[in-house]
Amino acid sequence: MTPKEIVLSAVAALFTKFDPEAAGQLLKEDYIQHNPAVPTGAAPILGFLPILKDHRLSVTNHRVLSEGDLVVLHSTYDNAQAFGGQTMVAFDVFRVQDGKLAEHWDNLQAAVPASQTASGNSMTDGATEIRDLDKTAENRALVEAFVKDVLLGAAPQKITDYISTMTYTQHNPMVGNGLDGLGAALKAMAEAGQAMAYTKTHLIVAEGNFVFTASEGKLGDTSTAFYDLFRVEGDKIVEHWDTISAIPAEMVHANGKF
């Protein structure tokens, strides 16, 4: 199986079938966990399955992309009180090794209905089809440069070199569509003492027209994880999804958030 097929099979065993035997065959025993609230290793997550089944957890996968040994899932979890809320939007990143899941990173945020977002878009709707596989490297380089210049602040004035001035569909619930919507949201956040600052990007995964990044930084004074997914079309970023979550000072393992 491909890394993508392995991950989808493992996630189905874990969160649809709640089958510890099937899931255990797809998890390395020394599975490295980066979710701050879940102990590392395969045994803790397998032992957690009866609780998830009792809560009637369900998962909907919206987007799946992979590069090398890394696979990214963009999903919604319902009945997800064990994960922090009734409905949670998540990015899960898995590293596959020797046909099994070897490492996991994630970032979850409470879902906001489209009727309550600044753009009128939900946190998960929009384009899903992976296209332009021949442009994967080019699109990855574009987003890497955007991260360096704009998100990390090397040359923020170059934002229009990366984001389309014609079409920029936004799925962050606090941000309106277009560059004007982004600018207005960033200004409002700064004025409210919640300025957003990226300091380091740890993971980049690209497949065709989609590029995912996992970064850390500050939201106001709070250490924060920023997981972003960008869609590229015509050599410009035209759509954006994200989840934002505080990084706790204490975790149940020593692996860190990243």
Rank of each mutant, 00 (worst) to 15 (best):
residue 169 T to K: 11
residue 33 Q to N: 07
residue 23 A to V: 03
residue 147 V to K: 00
residue 15 F to K: 06
residue 228 D to R: 00
residue 189 M to Q: 14
residue 156 P to V: 11
residue 196 M to K: 14
residue 35 N to P: 09
residue 228 D to Q: 02
residue 72 V to G: 03
residue 69 D to F: 07
residue 44 P to D: 05
residue 32 I to E: 02
residue 253 H to P: 05
residue 67 E to A: 08
residue 44 P to R: 01
residue 254 A to L: 13
residue 55 H to G: 14
residue 27 L to A: 01
residue 74 H to W: 13
residue 251 M to N: 04
residue 164 S to H: 03
residue 8 L to S: 12
residue 204 I to D: 03
residue 134 D to N: 14
residue 46 L to Q: 04
residue 51 I to E: 13
residue 159 I to V: 14
residue 125 D to L: 07
residue 195 A to M: 09
residue 247 I to F: 02
residue 149 D to P: 04
residue 231 R to A: 06
residue 239 E to G: 04
residue 246 A to Y: 08
residue 13 A to T: 04
residue 206 A to D: 00
residue 116 Q to A: 15
residue 75 S to L: 13
residue 152 L to Y: 10
residue 86 Q to P: 10
residue 121 N to L: 10
residue 124 T to E: 12
residue 127 A to P: 09
residue 77 Y to R: 02
residue 86 Q to A: 15
residue 54 D to Q: 15
residue 185 A to T: 01
residue 29 E to F: 08
residue 14 L to K: 01
residue 171 H to R: 04
residue 56 R to F: 10
residue 213 T to L: 04
residue 61 N to R: 15
residue 34 H to V: 01
residue 48 F to H: 08
residue 235 D to F: 12
residue 247 I to T: 05
residue 130 I to K: 05
residue 30 D to S: 05
residue 62 H to D: 08
residue 86 Q to C: 07
residue 252 V to D: 01
residue 142 L to V: 06
residue 97 Q to Y: 09
residue 242 D to L: 01
residue 104 H to K: 02
residue 196 M to T: 15
residue 16 T to Y: 10
residue 55 H to E: 15
residue 96 V to N: 02
residue 72 V to Y: 01
residue 186 L to N: 12
residue 32 I to Y: 04
residue 135 K to A: 13
residue 149 D to S: 08
residue 93 V to S: 03
residue 248 P to V: 04
residue 251 M to C: 07
residue 177 N to D: 12
residue 253 H to A: 00
residue 69 D to S: 10
residue 183 G to L: 11
residue 139 N to Y: 02
residue 105 W to T: 00
residue 61 N to S: 13
residue 35 N to Q: 07
